[in-house]
């Protein structure tokens, strides 16, 4: 199968809407079909990464479990926009899964070199 570089941008907080889940599911599907997947957390999307979440209290599935599957599906490029972290006073130590933190120039380059960018 032809391979393209697909970048998924997840920009929504985890539980108030289903957008976060939609982006994860789409990213995982792309990984299953052996595409080159970049998964970028940006804006409120970085709230998905915060440690110590337990969504049982709101009868929802804790997002961290879904995020751990990114690695299981072989997605190596799990990326975070540094500006979004700084704006929310978060740092690498606050995050639940290993990620690569991208500076402004790296974020711009990522978008520029992707064949397709899906930003729900």
């Amino acid at each position: 199968m032809q391979q393209k570089s697909l970048t998924f941008i997840t920009r929504q907080a985890p539980y108030g809407s289903n957008k976060a889940k939609l982006v994860i599911d789409a990213g995982l599907a792309a990984a299953v079909f052996e595409q080159q997947v970049n998964f970028l957390f940006m804006d409120d999307g970085v709230f998905q990464l915060v440690q110590n979440q337990n969504a049982e209290s709101i009868s929802s599935k804790t997002i961290g479990r879904a995020l751990e599957t990114l690695d299981l599906y072989g997605i190596e490029q799990v990326l975070v926009d540094s500006v979004s972290l700084e704006e929310r006073d978060l740092s690498a130590e606050d995050l639940a899964i290993p990620v690569k933190i991208l500076n402004a120039e790296q974020v711009r380059q990522l978008a520029a070199r992707s064949d397709v960018v899906i930003n729900l």
């Binding site: 940006m42 804006d43 926009d81 500006v83 402004a104 974020v107 711009r108 960018v117």
Partner: peptide, 8 residues
């Protein structure tokens, strides 16, 4: 502003 972070 978010968009401009990706704009080349």
């Amino acid at each position: 502003n978010s968009c401009l972070r990706l704009v080349c």
